[in-house]
Amino acid sequence: MNNTNNVKTHRKKSLRRMQNLQLYSMCALPVLLIFIFNYIPMAGLVLAFKNFRYDKGMFGSPWAGIDNFRFFFESDSFIKITRNTLGLNALFIFLIIVCSVALAVTLFRINSRRATKVYQTVLITPHFVSWVVAAYIVYALLNPQYGLINHLLVKFGIEPIDWYAMPKAWPAILSIAYIWKHIGLDSVIYYAALMGMDSSLIEAASVDGATRWQQTRFVIIPQLTVLIVIQTILKIGGIFRADFGMFYQLTRDVGMLYETTDVIDTFIFRTMRVVGNMGMSSAVGFLQSVVGFVLVMVTNYVSKKIDEDYGLF
């Protein structure tokens, strides 16, 4: 009896080992790809402290100490791109949360689920258009010669505006574009939370004689508070990363607009590809990675404190 048990556990053990081997072999290739394309570039961050030379390579190039950083901090770009990145991202975060929560609540309150689906499909559409195509649309609207907006202005007797030479206008233009592209998908998460909410709360409020507006204001929106706070915190975690595509394409990389539209990501790209200054661009990239990492850790910690279920880990 004892003997057969031993054989059984032995067989179970070797079966488990077989299974583990099969599982390892499954994930070997994806794990290798992550190593090559994600981990090796992390090691490449040493470039920030080097004087990169194509003939010497990533690790063989001579050290430059903190020169790359010094040049960046001494340039007037430092203040400008930091201000633009943080300022515009903060503006986007605020606007998108207000708009997508309002949209989710409105969608939740209409009585027809079928209508909701149609609205959602329409509202998500811009998410599937590239920024290149979006730039064509913006151009059709703002083109100084034929643009729709300038034509309307002229009709009302207002002087046409050369939008691509007017940096002041771009925080607003970019905000509108940002909301246009993201509102549909961002509202899905709030909508899903509302769908999972206990409907007896609303029934109870309505039995007590609350109007629909009162139900929305005092029952539904408080249900979303935690989620809103967490979403805000998580988005703040990414505040040092700008959407390169949006800033590069919509502004058509027009130098005259840099004052309000040049952000960290466009600066890194331009410094690397157009100016060819590997040192400074990798130093700025280094700062973005490290500061971004610290910020993500902090914001995750905070959101976990608020609610165990949220946060990325």
Partner: peptide
């Protein structure tokens, strides 16, 4: 190992050099 790549990345320049050089 997978998760960490969501938190931290090498950014554009090292990737560019890895891929081209």
């Amino acid at each position: 190992y997978v998760y960490f790549t969501m938190l931290f990345s090498g950014g554009l320049v090292p990737s560019y050099i890895l891929i081209t050089q």
